[in-house]
Design a protein around this nucleic acid. Structure first.
Length: 885
DNA sequence: GCCGTCACG
DNA sequence: ACGTACGTGACGGCA
């Protein structure tokens, strides 16, 4: 059997565009020796590799637009009129992309007066006539009009490495029309980004309905007089000329004067020699290495570094050296509080000393060197390294460069906690932890210790190589003090908190486990009785059948997989059947039982403590997160759950738990960064902020007139504002109509015009800069702010509003934590900072220190940063965490 | 491994 | 016309 010939057609402009924005956040990391950006080039080539491997084409062509004026602009001079112009950083890459394609043996082509689409359409028809299969790659959904049984269109989704494949069948499923009818649809609805109009008030849904009813646009207009009187009919008649023009504009010209034969498009494959030179010029390390892999054994992929034994004489050399050293302490296991150290490597950038013998950590001069803050060190993940070394009796100080922290600050998406992944973002190839150790059952330490040490040496080398570049980027972003003064010192504070751990009384949890088990059993039996059968209440699927089929309760909401049985749904069904309340009770207790009562016991260590791990480099906003277990979501809102907190106790008797939290810190931050006078006044005068808001938005004269319900609604509105408000979201939350919610919001913005201005300005800032910032210059990139997709774009806008608020609040408590630790030392207090829960800190302390803490802790917290409004701190204490609230 | 659900700020 | 509050982690069920 002979393989059918296959033509691969790529829409050069649209894919380049997508490639550029897919890697827009790393724009500054991708610059070649000539100072030209290479991010789009890199992403384009990545995509090529994947597609060529996947499609194995015999013929290839990448089509480009020739210029701004085409036969379409002659028909309609505003065609693509509002399109933003191509960023210069992409413009400079377009010739490079053509060069790359040339070296990769792929033909490129452009045709004056025509767009890339038309070239693609024309060649795909030619190829089809010749009996070839055709695959088209594009970022533009409009090209799906070209799909036939022989022609598949793959549209880029999420960047350029993934695509959605359109066949006629898929078009039908997705839109409910045939590929030929897409142009009718576009004609009727118009196109915002290409800037041509359709019929007034007709969007995708209406267009598809009309097409399904009548057929083509011509058919629709043939029958337009028969339609019954409606606005739609009027619009159709009024905009008829426009609709036909738009259809013409949307139609890809499959008969363009392309002077190419199929034989010109034969795929020749890489010109190895030229390609290597080109990659070198572009600093494309990983592509170069990928080429080598093809010819050599993949185990030789690793660059061999000579690693010398970390023995006594090596240690002597290290401790006497004045050089900065890179330190790798490798743990093996899921949780570094229990994982063993499997290797240690120290390098001065020239010599690499390593060992798998952990007894080296008993060497006194090495211990002293590690703990010496004047001996400067670089590493990846300071907190983990401190925790690992601590279990082996070693202290660590003097760390000036933590590559993990810097990578996260530069781009919060680099949060995978893996040096290999960070290296990859800088175009250096280093195996990830998973690639090196394997995953699942195959996960293991290499038998040959040389292999392991070589890996550690590579890690050290990567840290060393990237340090200067990354620190320079930090400085460019004005983030050096965020790193030096906040994140790096905080990593030490967090390490101390994790190592200290919080004492938990297992007996208390055990007792609760028995009580809840009995209760669960009782409710379970009652539910079975009411339902008339036994089933798994924890299965939303089975529960759905019982509620909505057996008991025939009304379906309020559906999920992707079936009926929704979430709380808000069940709350609405409470009156309809007694079983609903029982299910709610069951759910509540079952959650407490599985996640907390039983769940937490698994984490209690032999020292009677739980040692959580704070992820310092995960969230998109700068908050911490807590895992294994999560100690930031211990129940408090309902009393049954809150009982859990009785198990959290101080480590010594006659000690207490002490907690301190910021009051309304996010709203205070909003008052500060928005500069809104009315909101600032409320905080400066220490009014009840929610009551004050209620008074304003309900137009009352005094807060005395505010009813509890008004206050509740105002509070929800304040929250909504912080989240990046939508009328729908607010209406759902407080159970009012969308219209009412919209009126609340309007009134809110009238009363707090500064807040309104902030919301508008921050979205504009995000659009112009591609990111938003906190008060300490923490950055979050928002590429979706430019998305064509309504939802993605709106989501990005809400995050633009929320992130500076949530993130600045995170900055503030981080500063407070660092100052807190200093204060505790300075005042020689025995108190320990144990936990952080976003806006509060939890301590244990001798009862005799409580009075001191009540004075000092709030003063450290409210002076952490200077805002235009005061920060307010509230404290509590008691025998257990339950009582300290 | 993903989904629905629910705990926290 | 679109389908929404922001940020997290862990559990049980189910493919």
């Amino acid at each position: 059997m002979t393989q059918n010939k296959k033509l691969l057609l790529i829409d050069g402009n649209s894919v380049s565009f997508r490639a550029f924005f897919a890697m827009h956040n790393v724009l500054d990391k991708f610059v070649n020796g000539d100072g030209i950006h290479t991010n789009a080039l890199y992403a384009f080539n990545n995509m090529l590799d994947l597609i060529l491997k996947d499609e194995k084409p015999t013929h290839t062509l990448v089509a480009f637009d020739a210029g701004k004026t085409t036969f379409r602009t002659e028909m309609f001079k505003e065609y693509k009129g509002t399109r933003a112009k191509t960023p210069p950083e992409l413009m400079e890459q377009l010739p490079l992309i053509q060069d790359l394609l040339n070296y990769r043996g792929i033909k490129t082509y452009q045709l004056p007066n025509y767009e890339a689409d038309d070239i693609i359409g024309t060649m795909s028809r030619k190829a089809e006539k010749d009996g070839m299969d055709v695959t088209i790659i594009t970022g533009d959904r409009d090209l799906t009009q070209l799909t036939t049984d022989k022609v598949t269109v793959r549209v880029n989704v999420k960047g350029v490495t993934e695509t959605e494949s359109y066949t006629p069948k898929h078009v039908k499923e997705k839109l409910g029309i045939t590929p030929q009818q897409i142009i009718d649809m576009k004609g009727l609805m118009g196109d915002n980004s290409d800037h041509y109009p359709g019929v007034e008030k007709v969007g995708e849904k209406t267009a598809i309905k009309l097409i399904n009813q009548y057929g083509s646009m011509e058919d629709i207009y043939e029958h337009v007089d028969e339609m019954k009187k409606s606005k739609l009919k009027e619009h159709l008649i009024d905009d008829k000329d426009q609709a036909f023009l738009s259809k013409k504009l949307a139609t890809i010209n499959c008969d363009s004067p392309v002077e190419l034969n199929l034989s010109d498009l034969e795929y020749r494959g890489d010109n190895q020699e030229m390609l290597i030179q080109f990659y070198q010029k572009m600093n494309f390390q990983s592509f170069l290495e990928r080429m080598d892999i093809k010819t050599e054994d993949s185990s030789k992929d690793l660059v061999k570094i000579e690693v010398k034994e970390l023995n006594d004489s090596a240690i002597k050399e290290i401790v006497e050296s004045q050089k900065v050293h890179t330190l790798v302490v490798e743990g093996f296991g899921e949780n570094y509080h229990t994982a063993p150290i499997i290797g240690i490597l120290i390098s001065d950038g020239q010599t690499y000393y390593g060992t798998t013998d952990v007894s080296v950590l008993e060497n006194q001069s090495l211990k002293t060197w590690l703990a010496d803050k004047t001996k400067e060190k670089y590493l990846f993940d300071n907190k983990q390294t401190i925790a690992l070394l601590h279990r082996y009796g070693c202290q660590l100080a003097g760390v000036s460069f933590d590559m993990l922290l810097v990578a996260y600050l530069l781009d919060t998406n680099d949060n995978k906690q893996d040096i290999g992944l960070v290296a990859h973002n800088y175009n250096i190839s280093l195996p990830t932890q998973e690639e090196f150790y394997g995953k699942g059952v195959k996960k293991a330490v290499p038998e040959d210790e040389k292999v392991l040490l070589n890996f550690l040496a590579q890690e050290a080398q990567v840290i060393d190589t990237l340090k200067d570049q990354m620190l320079a980027e930090l400085k460019d972003n004005d983030q050096d003090s965020l790193y030096d003064e906040i994140e790096l010192p905080l990593s030490i504070v967090l390490a101390e908190m994790e190592i200290k751990g919080i004492t938990v009384e297992a007996s208390k949890l055990q007792e609760m486990e028995n009580t809840f088990a009995k209760k669960l059993n009782e409710i379970e039996q009652k539910i079975y009785q009411e339902a008339g059968k036994e089933f798994n209440i924890n299965s939303p699927k089975q529960l759905g059948v019982v509620l909505f089929e057996d008991l025939k309760l009304p379906v309020i909401k559906k999920t992707k997989t079936g009926y929704s049985t979430s709380v808000d749904v069940l709350e609405k069904l409470k009156d309809k059947s007694p079983v609903v309340q029982m299910v709610l009770d069951y759910r509540q207790i079952s959650k407490i039982q599985s996640t907390y009562v039983v769940g937490l016991q698994k984490f209690i260590q032999p020292d009677n403590k739980i040692h959580t791990i704070y992820l310092q480099t995960l969230t998109q906003t700068g908050r911490l997160s807590s895992i294994e277990p999560n100690l930031q979501n211990i129940p408090i809102r309902i009393d049954e759950g809150k009982q859990i907190r009785k198990a959290f106790v101080p480590q010594h008797k006659d000690w207490e738990i002490f907690s301190a939290d910021y009051s309304q810190v996010e709203l205070r931050v909003l008052a500060h960064i928005s500069g809104d006078e009315h909101m600032q006044e409320a905080f400066n005068e220490d009014y009840d902020i929610h009551a004050h808001t209620a008074m304003r938005i309900f137009g009352l004269n005094s807060t005395d007139e505010v009813t509890p319900n008004m206050r509740r609604q105002a509070k929800a509105t304040n929250f909504g504002i912080v989240y990046g408000i939508s009328d729908y979201g607010l209406s759902q939350n407080i159970g009012i109509s969308r219209k009412q919610a919209a009126a609340f919001i309007e009134s809110y913005f009238e009363q707090y015009p500064g807040v309104k201005k902030y919301m508008d300005d921050i979205v504009k800032y995000a659009r112009e800069n591609g990111y938003v910032e906190t008060i300490m210059h923490r950055r979050r990139y928002l590429p979706d702010i430019h998305s064509k997709n309504f939802n993605m774009r709106n989501f990005a806008q809400r995050t633009a509003m929320n992130t500076p608020i949530q993130g600045s609040a995170a900055d503030i408590i981080k500063v407070a934590m660092i100052n807190m630790q200093k204060m505790l030392v300075k005042e020689k207090l025995q108190a320990n900072l144990l936990l952080q829960v976003h806006d509060e800190m939890i301590f244990e302390a001798p009862a005799t220190e409580i009075a001191t803490l009540e004075k000092l802790v709030p003063s450290v917290m409210d002076s952490a940063v200077k805002l235009d409004v005061p920060l307010k701190v509230e404290t509590a204490h008691g025998k257990t965490w339950y009582e300290a609230k």
